[in-house]
């Protein structure tokens, strides 16, 4: 098994005709993802990288029975695209787009909860269940199938860690980039809950960063609800306060959201914390059951 996406997932690409949309649709197809349709208003009836394009997500879903979508739509229109996917009955929407206004994301969040569906992101690399399905922008070749679940707020750092895990012979069940914005559809706790239930996942790697309190809440959750071992890393140990560090949500404000607080919360919850990214695979190797 794996979580949220697998070999059965049928994917619609929203914004398939854009520069990044078409490039990454091809990469997803090359990986083996079942990309069944694209949706771009006004481009219905055409084809893009061999995939049929529809004017709306509803039409694309009616024609293909897709259950998942990925949004490469520019920030000004991306919130609308997510609403459209929810309205059309899509269950998992992966929103790659960076720069959607926070207020718009709050609206999406409310709708998501009311409908009982899921958004991953925004401002995220997406999700991959290695060997089965890749929905997003991550380089597929660095992943390998296995028993480690990975959840992270940072795209690049996820690639870094996954690459090391794969090199160390530690495959992954599913890797989710939850995104670097202050408000996101799927947080650490949601992912931990899913990994805890997934029989294939044995160890979870959690990659946090400065800003907000998601890591602290995740630590509490691990203490009370997660039996599987968790390894964590927190980026931004040297980040100056008051400065936004690349991600909209990565900011130490009013003295809270520091890496130190987060690392202490993880340690108190019995989570092994890596000091630098290259220590993560070693910590995981100690926890994976042999044989």
């Amino acid at each position: 098994m794996s979580i949220l996406v697998d070999e059965k997932s049928k994917v619609i690409v929203q914004g398939i005709t854009g520069r990044d949309g078409s490039f990454h649709t091809k990469a997803m197809l090359d990986y083996g993802t079942k990309v069944v349709a694209g949706a771009t208003p006004g481009k219905g009836g055409t084809e893009c990288v061999g995939v049929p394009v529809f004017d709306s997500v509803q039409e694309a879903r009616d024609a293909t029975g897709a259950d998942t979508s990925v949004v490469y739509v520019p920030a000004a229109f991306a919130a609308d695209a997510v609403h459209e996917a929810f309205d059309a009955g899509i269950q998992v929407v992966v929103c790659v787009t960076e720069g959607i206004p926070t207020f718009e994301v709050m609206r999406i969040y409310g709708k998501m909860k009311a409908l009982g569906v899921r958004m991953i992101g925004p401002n995220c690399p997406g999700i991959i269940s290695p060997g089965k399905c890749k929905v997003g922008i991550m380089p597929g070749h660095i992943h390998s199938p296995g028993k480690v679940g990975v959840v992270s707020r940072s795209g690049t750092l996820t690639y870094e860690v996954v690459d090391q895990l794969t090199s160390a012979g530690l495959g992954q069940s599913t890797c989710i980039g939850i995104g670097g914005d202050p408000i996101i559809g799927t947080n650490f706790i949601d992912a931990l809950e899913l990994f805890e239930k997934d029989p294939e996942t044995e160890v979870v790697v959690l990659i946090g960063e400065i800003g907000g309190t998601d890591e602290e809440e995740a630590a509490e959750f691990v203490k009370s609800e997660v039996k599987k071992p968790v390894v964590a890393f927190v980026a931004g140990q040297t980040a100056p306060p008051g400065k936004r560090m690349g991600h909209a949500g990565a900011i130490v404000s009013g003295g809270t959201g520091t890496a130190k607080e987060k690392i202490e919360a993880f340690s108190r919850a019995g989570i092994s914390v890596a000091e630098i990214p290259s220590q993560i695979s070693g910590l995981v190797a100690n926890l994976v059951k042999t044989g």
Partner: peptide, 22 residues
């Protein structure tokens, strides 16, 4: 951001943080 952390970890001093973005 983790690059900055790693430079400090190895005893260096980053002059700046520059994320080229997506």
């Amino acid at each position: 951001m983790a690059t900055m952390d790693l430079i400090k970890h190895h005893g260096g001093e980053p002059a700046n943080f520059l994320d080229i973005g997506g």
